[in-house]
Design a protein around this nucleic acid. Structure first.
Lengths: 210, 210
DNA sequence: AATAATTAACCGACCAGTCAGTTATTTATT
DNA sequence: AATAAATAACTGACTGGTCGGTTAATTATT
């Protein structure tokens, strides 16, 4: 056993810092192993506390999940909404710019496994599915929908079906992130996401422009 | 309680029929609830036996899974390979034809939840991930790669990056099937997959043609 | 009667959530 | 300043339920 040095307490009271430490640890493990497969004991250990402490700050595993998501993705979405509302760029430029920025964000954020996580668990956790649909999916779609609408009105784009085109825009990006998180560990080759994104935008814009 | 009629035995010996009844039941539940979340007791009940019987035919849950996949998807892939090898259509027509046939198959098959299932569980079950990559993913990609190659050589398509274009082709379709299985139960609106597919092919072909 | 297929009771490991107790920190008292 | 009392952050053992896998007993078949 380690005789704990008397000057260093076994733990400290850190009421303010705990919640975000816990949500960050939780998000990391949820993304790494999935929601159902993640044990709260492991989350606690990674956050430097014990499981009991988790329940001081979050009433359930579900709530912990929701808190982690809120803390991580909502700022980015708000920023995107802001950019689209304020920017004076053409729809084409805005689309390019936003998608590329999105990919840049995805590549650097620890949250790039979120799509896969949610898709994988939605079926078994209705509460989480609804939460994600309302707070993330629909809002992101609206952002792209607005850009397309603007582009069509300005005759930059043909009068395409907007719902479908949104899917055309986001599908390759999202599926690739899902893919990376599902099979990444089993493939040696690296994939140049940025180059793929430029390629995707070229094809897509060529396909919808007037 | 029901006093079982003496003429009907409580169960019968059906050594030959059991395996496929069990794999079908397993596949259905795996797709419905995921691999980890599916209880073998439920598989057994759906197959009309008890859990012990499962272990007479399959040594483990993993083996049961692999057997179910093999039995279900390999035939379709072989058929697609055959079509591409034999057809005399132009690359454009072949692409359209194959994708639309693929979607038709997806819509009617009970196995249309397979992408989501595999993506969801791959991270926690390496054995299953490797199996699916080798036997399904790479083979499907090769089919589309061949079509693109042919189209480029015939100057129907620009000399696009083939790896990227394969992803362009399949991403919206696959992501939509994943989506349907992840969030389908929580959305009332129905989604016209066929119409979306036609739309997707229009945009895509417009984007890659010479 | 012998055998093979199937059942059903069982085991052991696992895990979300609980709670009685421990300990760091703050506040009141001298 | 020293100390005692009060507070609340934190721990860790425990519970109830679940589930993959096992096996002794039962039942159909030959």
């Amino acid at each position: 056993m380690n005789a704990d040095s008397p000057t260093q307490p076994r733990w400290q009271r850190r009421k303010d810092a705990r919640p975000s430490e816990i949500t960050q640890a939780a998000l990391q493990l949820f993304i790494q192993r999935g929601f159902a497969a993640t044990k709260l004991d492991d989350v606690a250990k990674l956050a430097g506390v014990t499981k009991g402490t988790l329940y001081l700050y979050f009433p359930s595993k579900n709530d912990l999940f929701k808190a982690a998501i809120r803390e991580t993705v909502l700022p980015s979405i708000q920023m995107a909404e802001q950019v689209v509302a304020d920017s004076a760029l053409s729809a084409t430029e805005l689309l390019r710019c936003l998608v590329e920025e999105w990919v840049r964000l995805i590549e650097e954020s620890p949250a790039n496994g979120l799509s896969k996580l949610v898709v994988a668990e939605a079926g078994n956790f209705p509460e989480l599915a609804h939460f994600y649909l309302d707070e993330v999916v629909y809002r992101v779609r609206r952002v792209f929908g607005d850009i397309l609408q603007r582009g069509i009105e300005a005759s930059e784009f043909r009068p395409v079906n907007i719902e479908f085109t949104i899917k055309e825009i986001i599908s390759p990006i999202i599926l690739q992130t899902i893919w990376n998180h599902a099979f990444g560990p089993y493939r040696t080759e690296r994939f140049d996401m940025r180059e793929f994104t430029r390629f995707h935008l070229d094809i897509l814009i060529r396909g919808i422009q007037s």
